[in-house]
Design a binder for these strands. Structure first.
Lengths: 351, 351
DNA sequence: CTGAAAGCGCTTACAG
DNA sequence: CTGAAAGCGCTTACAG
C-alpha cells in the first residue's frame, strides 16, 4: 500500500498538465465500453442499473472529472451562458448578478462572468472570449454596450441586456427600468420639497444617461421650471459625480438640489458639496439613481430612484435560458417601473 | 449579390446552434491545408508571408472565430485562469479583481470569474465547473476557502488564495496581509485616543476572522486591557456587523469603541449604533478592516485598517501565471503589511 | 514552407 | 441494454 501511494505521488510530480482520467479509463476499470460510460454519466435512461452503478463507482474511484472542452465539442452544446459586466465597482452589478446566477442555476445552466470596462479593446477581447467559449447566450449588465457588441450578439448568439434599453438596437432583448419616468420621479420629489433650481449631473453619452437626462428635462418643463434646467457633464462613477457636481455648484445661480445619474456618482457629488463647505441636505439636496445597497447604507442614506434590480436579473436569465430551451418567450423588451426611495439626503428647501 | 445575401440569411434562420466556419472552411477558401491555417492563426514562424496573408484574409472574410473547446482539446492548454469569488457584494472583491485581471492580461492569460457563497453545494459546483473547464490555475478571493477546495486545488491545479492565509493548508500559495498586526494597529489607534472598553465584532470561524480576533486580544493585553476584552459574534456582512454591534452595545459595561472584522460589517455596526440613539464617533468610535473604497466614500469616512488590495491582486496573478509559464517563483506565501487609515469614525473618548 | 494523418476526450446514431 | 465507429474542430509531430 505504501508502494502504491508512492507511485501515485510519482505521477503528480510529472511536468506539465497532470494526465487526468478519461472515460476510457473509467470504461476499462468498469469493464464496459466508452459509449456506455458516456451514457451512464449523462444519466441516460437505457443503461442497466447495475452497469450504471459499476460505472459510477469506477468514476468515483478514479476521481474522474468530465472535460468540458471535449464535452462541448462532442455535444455541440455548452449549456453555459456568459455574463458581461461593465463595472464591477458599481454595486448594482452584484445585486443583479446574484439574481442572474440563481435563476440560471435553477434552469441548469452554468454561468461564467467576464468583466470589461478598461478600454474598448479590452472589452472587445472579453466579449470575443465569451464567443470563443461558445456560450449559448450572453447577458450584459451596464449602462451601455461594449463596442461592436450589437453585431456580435445578433449574429452569434442570443443576448439580453440588463439595465439599458437601446433604442438604436431594437432587435436586442432587454430588461430595464423606465429611466425617463424614474428621472421624473426624482424631479417631482424635489419639487414637492420646494426646490426649483435643480441641476442634473449627467452620465455622458450612454443610452441610460440619455434617458435620465431626457426625463429630467421633461419633468422640469412640466413643472414650469424650464428656465432652471441645468445639465452638467458627469459619468457613472464617483469621480464623474464629483466633477459634475463641482461644476454645478459653481454655476452663477447655484442649484439647491442635484439629481445625479446614479448612486455611485451621487457619492462623489456629496463629496463635492462637502468640499465647498456646504452640507447635505441642509444646503443641497441630492438624489441618486439605481436603488443599490450602497444608497441604503446607514451613514449614507441616499434618496434614490430604485430599480427592481433582483427582479431584472431574474427576468433576464429566465428569458435567455427559456429561449435557449425553446420556450416561446414573450416580448423581447421588458421595461419595469422604478420607484422613489426617500431617505435623508433630500430636505425642504430653505427660503 | 442580393441572392447571396438571401442565402446567408437563410442559414441564420436554421434551428439550433448556428454552424460557424471552421479552419476547414478557411483552408478551402484560402486554397491551403487545415494544418497551415492552424499554423498561420497561431502566428507560427515558418509560414510563407503571402500564404499567411491569404489565410488571414480568408478567415476575416468568413468571420472565422476560434472554437475554444476544440483548441483546448488539441493544444492541451486553455491559457485561462479561473477566479473564484466568495462575495461579490464585498467591495474588496472589485479592487482585487481589477488588479488580477490586468496582470493576467499582461501575461496573456484569460480569466473567467465564478461566484460562490450561496451555500456549500453551490460553491463546490462552481469550483467543479472551473476544474471541468480545465483552467490552468485558480485564484480564490475571500476570507475563507470553499469546502473541499483544499484537496481540489493541490490535486488538480495550482492555486493562490488572496486575502486569507490558511495555516491549516501550508501547501497552498497565498497573498495576504498580516491580520494579527492589522488588528493591533486598530487597537493601538483606539487606545491612543483614550479608549479602554474596546469590543471586537468578530467574523466567525474563518481563518481571517480568527487572526483579526487574535490580534485584537494580543494588543489589548499588551496595553494592559486584558480585562476589557470582549468579543461578540458577527460576520463579514453588513447584517452580521449589525447584529454583532447590537450585542456589544448591550453589554453591561458598554464599550466606547468597536473594532469590526471588515468594512462591510462596520457599515452594519454603525447602523446599530445609530439605532440605539448613539452617534459615531461622539459616543462610539468604529474601526473597520480592509481599506475598501466603500470606507473612503465621503459620507462614511470610516477609519479602517488598509490592505494593499491592488498590490495583492497583482502579486497573486503574477505568481500564478509565472508558475504556469515555468518561472521559478519565490516563496509561496506572501504577507504584506497593513496600515491604518484614519478618517472620521474614531475620536478621543469622552470622560 | 506545406500537407496527410493521428490524436485530444467526448457524444451520438447505428447495429446488434 | 451494449459496443464499434464516426465525428466534433482543433494541434502537432512527421514527411516531403
Amino acid at each position: 500500500m505504501a508502494a502504491e501511494g508512492a507511485e501515485e505521488n510519482g505521477r503528480a510530480a510529472e511536468v506539465g498538465p497532470v494526465a487526468r482520467p478519461t472515460i476510457r479509463d473509467v470504461a476499462t476499470r468498469a469493464g464496459v465500453s466508452k459509449s456506455l460510460v458516456s451514457l451512464a454519466l449523462q444519466n441516460a435512461p437505457r443503461v442497466a442499473p447495475q452497469t450504471r452503478a459499476a460505472i459510477l463507482a469506477a468514476a468515483e474511484e478514479l476521481g474522474y472529472r468530465r472535460n468540458a472542452a471535449a464535452h462541448a465539442l462532442g455535444a455541440h452544446r455548452t449549456r453555459t451562458i456568459g455574463v458581461f459586466v461593465l463595472d464591477l465597482h458599481n454595486p448594482l452589478t452584484a445585486d443583479v448578478l446574484d439574481a442572474v446566477q440563481a435563476e440560471a442555476r435553477r434552469r441548469d445552466y452554468r454561468t461564467i462572468i467576464v468583466v470589461g470596462g478598461e478600454d474598448a479593446a479590452a472589452e472587445r477581447a472579453e466579449l470575443e472570449k465569451l464567443l470563443e467559449f461558445r456560450v449559448e447566450g450572453i447577458i450584459a449588465v451596464g449602462h451601455r454596450l461594449p463596442d461592436g457588441a450589437d453585431a456580435a450578439f445578433t449574429a452569434d448568439c442570443p443576448a439580453v441586456i440588463i439595465g439599458s434599453d437601446h433604442r438604436s438596437t431594437p432587435h436586442l432583448a432587454s430588461v430595464s427600468n423606465d429611466d425617463v419616468m424614474g428621472a421624473g420621479l426624482a424631479v417631482d420629489h424635489l419639487v414637492s420639497l420646494g426646490h426649483e433650481r435643480i441641476a442634473c449631473v449627467d452620465g455622458g453619452p450612454s443610452a441610460v444617461a440619455r434617458d435620465r437626462r431626457r426625463g429630467y428635462r421633461t419633468a422640469m418643463r412640466r413643472h414650469g421650471l424650464g428656465d432652471a434646467i441645468a445639465v452638467v457633464k458627469g459619468s457613472f462613477t464617483e469621480d464623474g459625480g464629483y466633477r459634475g457636481a463641482s461644476q454645478a455648484l459653481d454655476l452663477p445661480e447655484r442649484p439647491t438640489a442635484l439629481f445625479v445619474v446614479n448612486d455611485l456618482a451621487a457619492m462623489g457629488a456629496m463629496a463635492a458639496v462637502e468640499d465647498r463647505g456646504l452640507s447635505v441636505p441642509d444646503d443641497i439636496s441630492v438624489v441618486g439613481y439605481d436603488g443599490t445597497r450602497l444608497a441604503g447604507i446607514r451613514p449614507i442614506g441616499l434618496t434614490t430612484v430604485g430599480q427592481p434590480l433582483q427582479q431584472m436579473g431574474t427576468q433576464a436569465a429566465a428569458r435567455l435560458c427559456g429561449q435557449l430551451d425553446g420556450e416561446v418567450c414573450g416580448q423581447a423588451r421588458t421595461r419595469l417601473p422604478p420607484s422613489l426611495i426617500e431617505r435623508r439626503t433630500t430636505a425642504r428647501v430653505l427660503r
